[in-house]
Design a protein around this nucleic acid. Structure first.
Lengths: 216, 216
DNA sequence: GTCTATAGATTGATAGAC
DNA sequence: GTCTATCAATCTATAGAC
């Protein structure tokens, strides 16, 4: 039994990153002060500069970590599929991948999505590329669907993308793992996306369990 | 030909509100300084305090204006319908209403959506109610659809709402009025929402003009 | 690795002249 | 209504002791 500090400093750098991610996301970049982060970590503001050279470096690391996590996590889900998987299968895997990345990497993932506009100029440029990379991945997945005849000719791919990402990214705000699985929510989203919400000519009965996963 | 200032001060209060809305949305609340607003308006920072008692009052007015505009604008669209309009008709009118509110009130509308979390505590409480009012309106519209049998029993209303609002709210970011009308985009969104993106058993040909309205 | 002390810049806001 | 001048508070960041 060694030390027992406020945060039982196993790794102060990691602690600071997590606190920073949460604060940047909830309070914003400028509103987050080095002092408040230090307070929460149980150290003095000046001590942060032993771990990070500046506030700018701190936010860069947070946002980069978030962006990388999402892209890599989706890629993992895609790589796990057989090479001849259909566009629809790949699409569904990506939906689940992006959702679970949001849950798993929480504030980091949100930081990447919400913080870009607030970043200092230098830091922003590098991150924008990461963001565009994610957008391109989704555009490709949607184009794959179109090639395989899974998209009506009149639906716009760019519109689909914002439609989907807006929905998926909101998951982090309301998902409650005790009430249902991510898998069920992902299925509901894909169902809504492909089939719409209108009943088919012949009404059908489906499990309502996925419904319980949304709290609000 | 009276005065001709930097902003030709017809109404400095209005000018300040518009600049503040834009800056709050793009830079965030804390990052927006009274000095930068004054610079853009062509006056000194101290002069702002003749029009507003504090930075806090300034952001309150901006966010309130945005929230009211959206709710009232949708309500206008709904009130223009005949009293016996179907839930589907009301729903489509609300989609167009929220979209055109976003375009018409631009930064004010975005401020209401994006700034809530950054507001000082006192200002936030009042605004949260306005936000919930908007959410309730959409929930009611969706419940109306369900009552009239336009929603499959397995689709979750809360999920529908985030799905829709995420999509609609993104409109402000990419809509280009020279490439198409809001009406066309609204139709596409409603089509996607009700019918999904999957081709029907029997493929059909539809106009692609709406596709051109999205730029990115 | 963390502390105390403090420099240097910027912020929201006030007082009073015009 | 807008200005000049200024205050008190707070911020990022550095220097150097321990």
């Amino acid at each position: 039994m060694a030390k027992r500090n406020v945060k039982s400093n196993v790794d102060m750098r990691e602690t600071l990153l997590q606190l920073a991610a949460r604060s940047f996301v909830t309070q914003g970049y400028t509103a987050t002060t080095m002092r408040s982060l230090a307070d929460q970590a149980g150290i003095e503001a000046a001590s942060i500069y032993y771990h990070f050279s500046s506030k700018e470096e701190l936010v860069e690391v947070v946002v980069a970590h978030g962006g990388d996590s999402i892209v890599l996590h989706i890629q993992e889900h895609l790589d796990a599929l057989p090479p001849n998987a259909s566009a629809e299968t790949r699409f569904k895997a990506a939906v689940l991948g992006q959702m679970s990345a949001l849950i798993k990497f929480g504030d980091y993932a949100l930081a990447h999505g919400r913080l870009l506009a607030q970043l200092p100029d230098k830091a922003r440029e590098g991150q924008v590329k990461r963001h565009e990379q994610n957008q391109r991945l989704w555009t490709q997945l949607l184009e794959g669907l179109r090639t395989e005849g899974m998209l009506r000719p009149d639906v716009d791919i760019a519109l689909c993308r914002v439609f989907l990402l807006g929905c998926i990214n909101s998951v982090q705000g309301w998902f409650n793992p005790r009430k249902g699985s991510l898998d069920q929510v992902a299925k509901q989203i894909c169902g809504m996306f492909f089939e719409g919400v209108k009943p088919a000519a012949k009404a059908r009965k489906v499990s309502r369990r996925a419904e319980a996963a949304a709290s609000s």
